[in-house]
């Protein structure tokens, strides 16, 4: 069975924000009211975190894109009272929107704060409804959503390789962020496939996992020469 994982090379990432835009368009993520956005209700499935280090003028900035970490041992699934968030056999942490009751326990449990809540009915002008991605359902008010590693793309890839009568190869399945990164900083693949890029990169001496001590075993690995 595959185990899907992402490796983000922070030595290459410039922080341009392309991943955020690609993700928002691919997944039909709602744009919330400007005032609500500034009070912390903005919805990004992948966001850019900046941390300044050092004293002026010797400043360094640590910047990293933060999607859902798809933990092997996810804290969020354990607290869901209705089994709306779960981990599947291939290690993807999924979200079943119509089962979600909006209690937001999972948002509290997630140590990486990657889940977002639909405070309002998402609204789009009629014109924009034409260009929704037909592969991804639009959410309703009162449900939690988060990065899915573009799981809808996996479904398509599986059909594709099935028809061609072959196995999934490294690079067949790419989430939108990894596909369009201009710095080629996001790698995606199967940790169980020893030929895959992510398998080898995740073993690199530069590899770091966020808050490893919690035992969540995140499947998003950062590469960085810096501490």
């Amino acid at each position: 069975m595959s185990k899907w994982a992402m490796v983000i090379d922070l030595d290459k990432c410039t922080g341009c924000g392309d991943c955020i835009a690609a993700c928002k368009i691919e997944n039909n993520i709602a744009i919330v009211d400007p005032e609500e956005a500034n009070s912390g209700r903005v919805m990004f499935w992948i966001e850019m975190v900046s941390v300044y280090e050092g004293e002026f003028p010797n400043i360094k900035i640590k910047r990293f894109p933060k999607p859902c970490f798809h933990c092997e041992n996810p804290p969020c699934t354990k607290v869901c009272p209705v089994h709306a968030t779960y981990k599947n056999d291939e290690g993807l942490v999924g979200q079943i929107y119509h089962r979600c009751i909006g209690c937001r326990y999972c948002m509290v449990a997630c140590p990486y704060t990657v889940k977002v809540f639909n405070w309002y009915e998402p609204e789009w002008p009629v014109e924009f409804r034409k260009c929704f991605n037909p592969d991804v359902s639009v959410r309703t008010k009162g449900v939690v959503e988060k990065c899915s590693f573009c799981a809808h793309r996996l479904i398509k890839v599986k059909e594709e390789v099935d028809l061609e009568g072959r196995d999934i190869q490294d690079g067949d399945y790419m989430p939108a962020c990894a596909e369009s990164c201009p710095a080629d900083a996001i790698y995606f693949g199967d940790l169980e496939n020893k030929e895959s890029k992510v398998y080898n990169l995740a073993k690199s001496s530069r590899a770091k996992r966020e808050m490893e001590n919690l035992g969540t075993e995140p499947k998003v690995v950062y590469l960085s020469k810096r501490e």
Binding site: C131, S180, D184
Partner: peptide, 24 residues
């Protein structure tokens, strides 16, 4: 109907890369 835009991987200027503007 256009629903998504990605970089053209064989176009030598951006080699499949994009910036946020392009998606919108």
């Amino acid at each position: 109907i256009p629903v998504y835009i990605k970089g053209n991987p064989i176009y030598p200027v951006n080699q499949g890369g994009m910036c946020p503007l392009g998606h919108s």
